[in-house]
Amino acid sequence: MDWNRVEGNWKQVKGKVKEQWGKLTDDDLDRIAGKRDQLEGKIQERYGIEKDRARRDIDDWYGRQGW
């Protein structure tokens, strides 16, 4: 599954995102709406990490999903 499909299935995927990054609120997830760059930015903001780290964390999470 490529990221476009994540965006298209965001309502189903956001539960998995919330399991991984529990500091993200439902409002955050609604605003992100599957946009990867917004997800990176919000993870960076909520967890106080640099953008490269957020990107790696998303890549790791994405790779572990059984799409």
Rank of each mutant, 00 (worst) to 15 (best):
I32T: 01
K11R: 14
W61V: 04
N9D: 14
Q44C: 05
K18H: 12
V17H: 04
D52T: 09
E45S: 03
W3C: 05
D30I: 06
G41M: 03
Q20E: 15
K16R: 14
V17G: 00
G34E: 04
L24M: 06
D59A: 12
W67D: 12
K42D: 03
R53S: 08
Q20A: 14
G41Y: 01
D26C: 03
D26R: 03
W3K: 07
K16M: 15
E45R: 01
I49F: 02
W10M: 09
K23G: 07
G48H: 04
Q44D: 07
K18F: 06
I32W: 00
K14V: 06
V17S: 03
G66N: 15
K35N: 08
D26E: 15
R36A: 02
I58P: 01
K14T: 07
I58Q: 04
L29S: 02
D57I: 06
E7N: 13
L39P: 00
K51A: 08
M1I: 12
R31T: 10
D37K: 05
I43E: 01
K18L: 08
M1T: 15
D30Q: 11
G8A: 14
K23C: 06
E7F: 09
L39D: 04
W10G: 02
V13L: 13
D2S: 12
I43P: 00
K18C: 04
G41Q: 05
Q20C: 10
K11W: 13
D27H: 13
G8C: 11
D2L: 10
R36D: 01
K42L: 02
E19I: 11
K11I: 12
R55I: 05
G22V: 11
G34A: 01
D52F: 09
D52S: 11
I43C: 00
N4Q: 13
I32S: 00
V6M: 10
R31V: 05
W3R: 07
N4R: 12
W3S: 07
V13S: 05
E50D: 15
D59W: 06
Q38I: 05
A54R: 00
L24W: 01
G63W: 09
G22R: 14
D59V: 04
D2H: 09
E45V: 01
G48C: 01
N4V: 07
I43F: 00
Q20V: 08
R56D: 09
K18Y: 07
G15H: 14
E19W: 10
N4P: 03
L29F: 01
D2Q: 12
K16N: 13
G48Q: 02
L29I: 01
L24S: 03
D26P: 00
G22Y: 12
R55D: 09
G8E: 15
K11Q: 15
Y62S: 10
I58N: 02
W3D: 11
D37M: 05
V6W: 09
R31H: 06
